[in-house]
């Protein structure tokens, strides 16, 4: 199925956020929002994803 990840269409076989995160192999710290709602990490496995979901992966910034 197709997801929008940071505004770009992406094919995935994952059924939930945990699977998606494993598939994407994200390096370093990040936060993930599903359809504009941040999801705590320990809820990834129980949060299903469906076609056309919008995923935003946000990295912490220290710059100031």
């Amino acid at each position: 199925m197709i997801l929008l990840i940071n505004d770009k269409p992406n094919e995935t076989n994952a059924a939930n956020l945990a699977g998606l995160v494993a598939e994407l192999n994200i390096e370093g710290a990040f936060a993930l929002a599903l359809n504009e709602n941040f999801i705590p990490k320990n809820q990834y496995a129980e949060t299903p994803i469906t076609e056309n979901d919008r995923i935003e992966i946000v990295a912490p910034m220290q710059g100031g």
Partner: peptide, 24 residues
């Protein structure tokens, strides 16, 4: 910490990545 758990973070600093003046 609800947003970002402490741990391995990339170096997202201005000195390394640059920053455009009016953004700050």
């Amino acid at each position: 910490e609800c947003l970002y758990k402490p741990g391995t973070s990339n170096d997202q600093s201005c000195s390394r990545n640059g920053v455009v003046s009016p953004l700050v």
